[in-house]
Design a protein around this nucleic acid. Structure first.
Length: 266
DNA sequence: ATACCTGTTTCCCG
DNA sequence: CCGGGAAACAGGTA
């Protein structure tokens, strides 16, 4: 379930493992999450090291280990992190288990769209440093939104919101939530959105991102009552604002949900 | 059985 | 070269 806030929450689940040594590494070589990653090097690189720090940036996670080792992790569509006992036995779809003396850190991903990578070096890897600003950061500005809209004038705005080059951390439900709050139809072409609407888009992105971090990111709960989130998952949902029937349809390649009554084409 | 899915990458088209 | 869209990846669930 991993968008911005769910990723932050997932990352926090490994916090108990910080400042503790990895005494054994289990990895399932055949899992697709290791594509492009040398599993031998990874297992050997992390073994006997101490987990020092964890951080997230949008949907990306970075774990720093002693000895200048860094582990990058992306949860894809179905990845999840959890803790287990030190006696934990890996089950199907566990891709990586880091054993410590009193616990184990588990990364599981049935669909294997997630990704693991290793970096050796004094400083954090370039694939981390070079990420665009997170939608939660100071560097994410109105201007970012305006420029993206202008550059992709033909794209449906829903598709643009999912573009991680501009909106690090935005996912399908967040994008629907944002558009619903702006009154913009998800299929509106980016070029048709005026500056006032663009500013509102920016405001609502921050609102949804911060609200999600508070409700979901801190304790793994659901977004607040009254959010579109609770009504958007299946056909037959009702708009929390207008009480009218919501619509669901594929827009920009993803299932989108909107209120035809309050969301109009720009 | 069939369709659907909170993500990203790759390929093809104009 | 580019922007845009569809398909592919893989397995669980309804």
């Amino acid at each position: 379930m991993p968008e911005l806030a769910e990723v932050a929450y997932a990352c926090s689940l490994w916090k108990p493992g910080i400042n503790k040594q990895i005494i054994k590494v289990y990895l399932n070589k055949s899992s697709r999450v290791f594509r492009g990653c040398d599993t031998e090097l990874l297992a050997q690189g992390i073994a006997a090291k101490i987990l020092k720090q964890s951080s997230t940036h949008g949907k990306q996670m970075l774990f720093q280990f002693s000895g200048d080792r860094w582990l990058g992790l992306h949860l894809g569509m179905t990845g999840s992190l959890s803790m287990g006992p030190s006696s934990y036995q890996p089950v199907k779809h566990d891709a990586l288990v880091l054993y410590q003396s009193k616990a184990s850190l588990i990364f599981k991903d049935p669909r294997q769209f997630g990704k693991i990578r290793l970096h050796l070096g004094k400083t954090s890897p370039s694939w981390w440093d070079d990420l665009p600003p997170s939608i939660l950061s100071k560097e994410f500005k109105k201007q970012t939104v305006l420029k993206a809209l202008l550059k992709h004038a033909k794209r449906p705005v829903k598709a643009l919101l999912l573009d991680q080059r501009y909106f690090q951390g935005m996912g399908n439900w967040m994008a629907d939530e944002v558009l619903w709050r702006t009154g913009i139809h998800p299929a509106s072409r980016c070029g048709q959105i005026d500056e006032t609407a663009a500013n509102d888009l920016f405001t609502k992105i921050l609102f949804v991102a911060k609200g999600a971090m508070k409700s979901v990111g801190e304790n793994g709960g659901d977004p607040p009552k009254g959010w579109l989130f609770h009504a958007r998952w299946k056909d037959g949902g009702v708009c929390p604002k207008t009480g009218k029937n919501l619509r669901r349809e594929k827009i920009g390649g993803r299932t989108s949900c909107w209120c035809p009554d309050s969301q109009k084409f720009s």
